[in-house]
Structure formats: structure tokens, C-alpha cells
């Protein structure tokens, strides 16, 4: 076997391992979110002297945020389909759409946070708000890092083309992005929905 083929062979195995490893990483991340959810559940009613969830949450805004994130998952899916068909240009275009949706989500979340802080409902006010900002903020931080990942991957697709490592990274980034979607559905159902009921 030539050096090139043996490298390729080894690379195939390594990428396979990385995808499996990434699933396990996602599980560790899921544990983090699970415990943040649990913390929120424990502290949700502890609003002390501060405002309660009923006074703060606005389902209309949250619905738009949810819509943005769910559609971004769909558009990432479109990028993955384009990847299967080896259409480099379409991969990049769908990634850009996903990125824009992710950034729009982040923008809305940040404005929600700053609005709450302006209203005197910052994380230092009560146990409830600490848990809220930490859980939702951790999710937001993940979306921000995912967005950064999309930027890096757009650059990689443009400079390297759809090579095997780039494909593998895109697959893993996709897993990450869809995972964040699932976590958001949890946030919507555990934080926002019961919060206004």
C-alpha cells in the first residue's frame, strides 16, 4: 500500500472514532444541561423579593426565538443534504442561512436578557433568576460557540473543499446544532411554558 492510501485508511478509522466520541461528548453536555434543568426546577419558585416568572416571561418573543432555532435546524439539515449531493456552493449557502438564523436567535436572547436586567430582574436578584440566566445563558453560549463553528466550517469548505475530514466535521457540527435545538425545546417546556401558566 502506498503512504497516501494507508493515511487515507487510517483517517477513515479516525473520523469514525471522532463521530462516536462526539456522541459521548454530547452525552456529557446533556448531563450538564440535565443538572442545570434540575437546579432550575429546584429554584424556580424561589423568586424571593424579585419578580416571578409570570411577570417576566413573554411567550410571544419566546415563540419567535423557538421558531428561529427550529428553522435553523432545518436549514442545517438542508446543508447536510447538499453535502450528501456534493454541492459545495449549496452547502455554504445553507450554512450562511443557518448562521444568520442562529445569530438572530442570539440577538433576541441578548435583548431579552438586557431587557430583564434593565427591569431590575438580573441574575443577582433571586435564586429563580440565577437559575434562569444560567440555564438559558449556557444554552446561548453553546449557540454562540456553534455559530463560531459554522464560521470556521464555511471557511474550511471554501478553502479545502468537501474533503473527508471536512465532511466529518460538518456532520459533528450538525449533531451539535440539532442537540442545541433539543435542549431549547426542553427550555421552552420546562422554563417558559410553565413559567407563564
Amino acid at each position: 500500500m502506498s503512504a497516501a492510501t494507508i493515511l487515507e485508511e487510517e483517517q477513515k478509522h479516525a473520523l469514525h472514532s471522532r463521530e462516536f466520541g462526539f456522541w459521548i461528548y454530547l452525552m456529557t453536555d446533556a448531563v450538564i444541561f440535565a443538572l442545570l434543568f434540575a437546579s432550575y426546577a429546584v429554584l424556580a419558585k424561589n423568586s424571593a423579593a424579585g419578580p416571578t416568572s409570570k411577570e417576566l416571561f413573554d411567550l410571544g418573543r419566546t415563540s419567535v426565538e423557538t421558531g428561529l432555532l427550529l428553522v435553523s435546524s432545518l436549514t442545517f439539515g438542508m446543508a447536510s443534504i447538499a453535502l450528501m449531493h456534493d454541492q459545495k456552493g449549496r452547502v455554504v449557502r445553507w450554512l450562511i442561512v443557518t448562521l444568520l438564523l442562529g445569530l438572530a436567535f442570539l440577538g433576541m436572547e441578548l435583548s431579552e436578557f438586557s431587557g430583564m436586567i434593565d427591569k431590575g430582574a438580573g441574575p443577582e436578584v433571586s435564586g429563580f433568576l440565577s437559575a434562569f440566566f444560567t440555564l438559558v445563558g449556557t444554552h446561548g453560549l453553546h449557540v454562540a460557540l456553534g455559530s463560531l463553528g459554522i464560521v470556521v466550517m464555511i471557511a474550511q469548505v471554501l478553502t479545502k473543499g468537501l474533503t473527508a475530514p471536512v465532511r466529518s466535521r460538518l456532520t459533528r457540527l450538525g449533531l451539535f446544532w440539532h442537540f442545541l435545538d433539543i435542549v431549547w425545546i426542553g427550555i421552552f417546556s420546562v422554563v417558559y411554558l410553565p413559567g407563564v401558566l
Binding site: L43, A48, P123, V125, G127, F128, S130
Partner: peptide, 26 residues
Amino acid sequence: LTVVAGQLMLDRTLGFHFFTNGDGGN
């Protein structure tokens, strides 16, 4: 461990109330 250390760090650095005596901490 990461979660609990992060929460205590937030309590200490940014005045959060995960584990404080008052203000709804537990």
C-alpha cells in the same frame, strides 16, 4: 462537578443566588 463549581463561581463572582442563605438560594 463542572456544573456545581460553575454555579458556586457565579455565586461568588457575579452575586448569583444558587447556594446563598437568602434571596431564594438553596
